[in-house]
Every structure is written in C-alpha cells, then in structure tokens.
Computed example of a mutant assay.
Amino acid sequence: MKICVLLAVLVNAFCISYAEGSSSRAGIAITDSELLSLSAQLYNVDVNKATSSLLSINKQTLIPNSDTGLEVDRATSLLFAYVNEATLFSRPTFKAFITLLDNYDRMTGVTESFTSAQIAEQDAFLQEIMSTSVMKELFKFLQSKAWYSTETEFSTDLKKMWFGLYSRASGKLDSSGFEHIFVGEIKSKKVSGFHNWVQFYLNEKKGLLNYYSHNYDGPWESYPDVLAMQFNWNNYYKSVGSAFIGSSPEFDFAIYTLCFIARPDKGCKVNLGGYVQSIQTYTWTNSFYDGDKRYVASAYPISP
C-alpha cells in the first residue's frame, strides 16, 4: 500500500510539471522552496561575478514609475563609472560571451545567418559556462529532478532553446532568446529585450547608448544588483529595461534557464544573497523545435 501511494505521488508530481511546462520537456515538479534554495546556491558559487573593486556604477536620477514612458534624459554622466575590463572580461565565460554580441542584426524582420565560425563561438560559450560551478550545480539539480540525464543532453537543449532562430517580424528567422535578452533588438521603432549589463556597458562606452535614469534599484549592496533603466540605444528608446548588474554570463544564463524550465510564462521567485527577486520568463509560442519544445522568448528581473 505504501509503495502504491509513493508511486502515485511521484507520477502526480511528474504530470504536474508536464502540465505547467511550456513544452514536451518534463521532469518532476520543482517546488518554490527548491527554487529559493537552488538560486541561493547558484548565487554563492558564482565566483566570476563582479566585486566593488572591479565595477562601479553611477545610478543618478530615480524616477517614479509614472514617468517611465517619458523620454527625458535626466543623467549627467555615464551609468558605468568604472569597469575593470582587464580582469573581468579576460575571464573565460565573459570573453566567450562578448564574442557573441556582434553576431546579430538588431533589426527585427532581417534574417539572421551565422558563419561556421560564429556557430563555433556559440559552442565555445556553452562549453565555457558548462564548466563553471554555476551551471554544474544547475545541471545536477535538474538531473536529480529527471529533466535531463546527461550534461550533453542538457547542453544540446540549451543551444536549441536559447540560440535557435524564430520569427518576430515579416516571417523572417530574425530572432532568438539569446539575441533578444542579451543583445537587444529593435521592433516597431523601439528597443525590445536588452537585459544584459555587459552589452549595456560596451555600447555606452562606444557612445552608442545614452543612459537616462532608473525607476528601480534593488536592495543589494554588492553584485549582482538589479536595476531597471531608461535609455536610448543609438536613436531608439527603452522605457524600462531591467537587468542584473555585475553578474557573470553563466549566472544570468543559469537563473533564466532555471525559471524558464520551472515557471515558464510566470513570475519565478529566486533567492539572491538573502533577498527574494522575481524573474519573468516567456516562451515563444509560434514555432517549436524537437517536436513541440518551445524556444526562450524573453527573461528578465521583474522591477516593482
């Protein structure tokens, strides 16, 4: 009798995860307490995140949410006051991440195509992050919950869900989860996506991005922090763009992947350095891979 009850509980947990999930990928349901516990662990093992000696920002004007739609430049200086590129960007995951940022056309409706060298850069990035404690802890957890059986299976699925192309405009294969979130896009004459601090910093440094203000500053006194910003990206406006500041590429990738798997299309509560932060993810619903698995459409920290 006890065995039957246990089996029934396990089957029910498996089925719940399938029903709540965004595709045919399915494992044992991930509880809220497990999300908080694992995310705290991922935060703690992220040895590549920035420290205050490597990164400094000048947040400047905090505006009310009612003003976020107003395109007004309230900043007198750059957001990033100092970044120690020699140390941070020489780290293997940062270095591999940065090589990917110039592989995309930011305009939706323009077909994306990759050379063999650029595809190799995607593989190199995945290989680098999969070697970190952050991604190894994430895989170990997902394996224990029967979502993936091997690291190879996990890495292969990551490449498809994050880098696989789909169409946001004009029926062209013009977008992916990685491009939308980490690089940024232009759609309907506005900035879409763009939730990464490294891309923000590099464009600000080149004079291609003008920081205006912020409407949310997380409670963290160290990095990663969360900031919701208003900015102009080379003549296109973003009214609210939230991002982790000072996080490593593998940390962003891990937290977003965890929430995309565990709470697709919902708020996902994670524990970062003792503070609870909600992450919003969205699945792409118009096309699929490997049958009926869905691509990442978007992911970002929710700003109140």
Rank of each mutant, 00 (worst) to 15 (best):
N103S: 12
G21T: 15
N44K: 06
S53C: 07
L38R: 04
S175E: 07
V296K: 03
F97C: 03
I279D: 02
Y166N: 00
I63V: 12
A86H: 06
E112C: 02
S52N: 09
K49D: 04
G246L: 08
Q143P: 01
E121F: 09
A297L: 15
L36M: 01
D217K: 05
G246H: 11
N271R: 08
E179R: 13
N65Q: 12
S144N: 00
E221H: 15
D105H: 06
K189Y: 05
S90G: 10
T76F: 06
D174V: 13
Y166R: 04
M229V: 15
Y216T: 10
V240D: 10
F182V: 05
S53H: 11
K140M: 12
K190A: 12
H180Q: 15
V270L: 02
K293A: 07
P64T: 06
F253N: 04
V226C: 04
Y237E: 04
Y18R: 12
F251A: 07
T76V: 11
S144F: 10
D102H: 14
F89W: 01
S23E: 03
K190T: 14
F97M: 10
L272F: 00
G241W: 00
Y216S: 01
W284M: 14
L54Q: 12
T152R: 15
P301A: 02
S247A: 10
Y148L: 04
Q122K: 03
L138W: 08
A86E: 14
Y104K: 09
F253A: 03
E128P: 02
Y295H: 11
S149Y: 01
T281L: 00
L7A: 08
